[in-house]
Amino acid sequence: MITLTFCTVYIALLSLVSTIDMFIYKQSFLTSLSYLFMQGKGTNEWMINVGVGVGFLYAIAVDYRLKKGKGSQKG
């Protein structure tokens, strides 16, 4: 559930940001979406990617633990 929410929020914000970029730069949605991932080579953007990655792993871990906790409660 946590992971699902995480992904939903991430994707939704991603599309919001690219929609705004779409208006600003007057380009298609897909171009701006791809720019979001393309740009930042050679900068320090890997850090926030790592941050999001850690967040994602954390979400999975919490989900796993919740599931296990529930399972043991039932059993």
Binding site: I2, T5, L36, I48, V52
Partner: peptide, 26 residues
């Protein structure tokens, strides 16, 4: 919306916000 306490979500979504704080504009 999802009917769960928010506390477990703080860290992952916090990371998402820091991610987008950089990504919103070049």
């Amino acid at each position: 919306i999802i009917n769960k306490p928010y506390r477990t979500l703080v860290f992952p979504l916090g990371m998402v916000i820091s991610y987008f704080s950089i990504q919103i504009s070049d």
